[in-house]
Design a protein around this nucleic acid. Sequence first.
DNA 1: CTTTCTCTGTCTATCGATAGATAGATTACA
DNA 2: TGTAATCTATCTATCGATAGACAGAGAAAG
Lengths: 190, 190
Amino acid sequence: MAKTKSDMREAVMAAAKAAVQAHGYNALSFRELAKDVGIKSASVHYHFPTKGALGAALARRYTEEGAAYLGELLVKSQDPKWCMDRYAEVFRAALANDNRMCLCGIMSAELDDLPPEVRSEVDDFAAMNVAWLARVLKLANPDAAEHVLNEHAMAIFAAIEGAQLIARGCRDVAIYDRTVRAYRKTGLIP
Amino acid sequence: MAKTKSDMREAVMAAAKAAVQAHGYNALSFRELAKDVGIKSASVHYHFPTKGALGAALARRYTEEGAAYLGELLVKSQDPKWCMDRYAEVFRAALANDNRMCLCGIMSAELDDLPPEVRSEVDDFAAMNVAWLARVLKLANPDAAEHVLNEHAMAIFAAIEGAQLIARGCRDVAIYDRTVRAYRKTGLIP
DNA sequence: CTTTCTCTGTCTATCGATAGATAGATTACA
DNA sequence: TGTAATCTATCTATCGATAGACAGAGAAAG
C-alpha cells in the first residue's frame, strides 16, 4: 500500500489547502505541512520546489475545481435563483468547515506579499467567478448590456466574499446566512 | 530636539498602522517598524511590551477614531444617502492610499492567529460599524424593526469590506467604485 | 551651587524558535 | 540496476523577546 508520487502530492495539496484556508498563505509552513502528511519538510520540496510553486498549484486547482462545479450547475438548471443558492452554499460550506475561508479571499488580503505566480492564479479565480455570475445574471436579464452584467456580477462576488470574511471574524455562520438573506431581500442577489 | 515618549509612541503607531493595512498583522515586524521610525527593535518593546499590545492599541485607536468621525457625520447631517456616501468614501480612501485595507478587514482574514487582545478589538470595530450603519438606516426607515436594521447594517458592512478586499486584489480602485455603485443601484445601500 | 540619585529612552548583544531551502545519503520498488 | 521518493543534516535569514549598559534630564540632598 505504498504511496505513489501522485498520492503524496495530492495529500500535500489537500493539507496545504486546508491550512491556507484557515491561516492564510504566509502562515503556511513546510514543516507543519510535512508533519500533517507524515513526511519530512525537505520531502515536500521534492513535490513542490518552492513555496510559491505550491501556492500557485493550489490556487490553480482551486479555480479549476470551482469552474467545473459551477459549470455543472448551469448544465443542470437555467434557474438563476437556484444557481445563486448553490453559489452561496459553496462559500457557506467553507465557513461551516472549521471556519475556513475562500482561498482567493484570504490570499487577497495578503496580496502584496504573494509570489507573482500565486498572485496571478488568485486573479484568475476572481475572473472565473465573475464570468460565471455574469452568465447567471444574463439568464435573469437577457437584454442587459454586458458591462452592466459584469458590474453586477463583480458586486455579488465582492459581497459574498465580504460576508464570508465578516462572518468568519465573528466565528458565526449564522451571520453569513443573515447577510446573504439581506443581499437577496435588497435585490443584489437574484 | 529629543523625542518625548509620546512622540515616539505615536510614530510607532503610525508606522505600524500603515504596515498592517498594507501587509497584515502577521507580517508586521518590530525590526522593520523600528527602522521606519529610526530606533532599534528592542526600543519598540519599551513603548509596547509585546506585539499583541501594539496590535490591540492599534485596533482600539482605529475604532475610536472611526467612531468619532462617523459620529460627526450624523451630527452634520441626517440624510442617509449623504452619510452612506461619506462612509463608502472612508473605505475608498484606504484603497487609494497605496492599496491599503481596513485594519479590521485585513485582520479578520488572520483571525485564528491573532492574540486574544487583538481579536477582541477587531470584534469591537465591526460592532461599532454595524451600530452606526443601523442608525443611518433608521433615518431612512424609522419604523423598521431593530433586528431588520441590524441585519441590513451587517450586510452593508460586509459588502463594503468585500468590495475593498476584491478591488484591492485587482489593484484597481475603479472596481471598488463600480461595485459600490452596483450596491446602490440594487438598493443594498440607500 | 553642586553633588548624588533616579527615571526615561535608547542602545548593543543575544536568546530560542521557526522559516524556506539545499546537498547528499538512503531506502524501496520495478 | 536504476530511478523515484524520502531521509538526515545543515544553512541562512528572520522572528519576538530579554538582559544589561549607558547617556541625559531632572529632582533631591547637602
